[in-house]
Nucleic acid binder design. Structure first.
Lengths: 146, 146
DNA sequence: TATTGTTATACTCTATAACTATA
DNA sequence: TATAGTTATAGAGTATAACAATA
């Protein structure tokens, strides 16, 4: 059975996911990449901005605007590391965590709604497949638009 | 069971698909969007460029560069419609079809390789799910970077 | 006047290269 | 000298508006 190419299917689906996600994030005053950066801090503080850039697969220079925005809104802090004052430790504030959590919950609900057309088995298989496929190979560095 | 958000998984996977696809297309001297436009013509000629733009969900002005490129390489033709000479009928040449076919085969092989980590049932479910999910809602018009 | 295809302009996003402050 | 973070410059990609040809 012939199906459209993966590139077509995936870009179409991702576009829709982004559209719905931006709607949610806009209500919280966040842009997509703000949220990505914020989300990367739920695992724990970033010892340096470069490290955070690598974690989010973004260029360190592109990260700065997001951090400025998040810091202005008191969702994260940048504090010089006393041990090496060139480094800035990036940490989530409690307010930042609250904003992230609210967004994350809404996104989870959005995803559930999006996947509703699938029956339970297919949905499980779909999610399992996605996780499996993205675990395959070493991630490429932080360039590009995705 | 918690999994990463769909946006993360899909963008990661799409990035990898694009990376591999660009490698294939580069060998044929095609850019990604050239290929998308070319592929859209396998279903049949486009009566107007606007119609082709809609078909590929691209802006009509962004289409022009691709058509210039494809026409230079004699992969498509643009001919004024005698019935309404404002319109240009866009058609694939036989050479264009051959180039497309070769790329398409390589891409199909690439996809098979990419999906190899999945067992047969999951792979089928994954493809079925993708097709189902992209059929859900009316496609958004031709703006944006995806 | 309206429409198709094209060109021109402005704007956004990304990549690269300076620059600063620490070490 | 080298590194983390920042700022500045240039380039690519996209959106919008103007334009020429045809209806």
């Amino acid at each position: 059975m012939d199906r459209p190419e993966l590139g077509v299917l995936l870009s179409q689906l991702l576009r829709e996911v982004i559209r719905r996600e931006e709607e949610i994030l806009a209500r919280a005053g966040l842009q997509m990449w703000d949220y990505v950066v914020l989300a990367a801090l739920t695992d724990g503080d970033a010892p340096t901005q470069s490290q955070l850039a690598a974690r989010t697969r973004r260029d360190k220079t592109r990260l700065i605007g997001n951090l400025d925005h998040l810091e202005d809104r008191r969702l994260v802090t940048r504090s010089p590391d006393p041990a090496d004052r060139r480094n800035r430790v990036v940490a989530m504030t409690s307010s930042g965590r609250a904003v992230w959590q609210r967004c994350h919950e809404q996104i989870t609900a959005m995803e559930k709604e999006l996947l509703r057309p699938l029956d339970r088995a297919d949905r499980a298989a779909f999610e399992r497949a996605l996780v499996r496929l993205t675990a395959v190979d070493a991630r490429t560095p932080g360039k590009g638009r995705l």
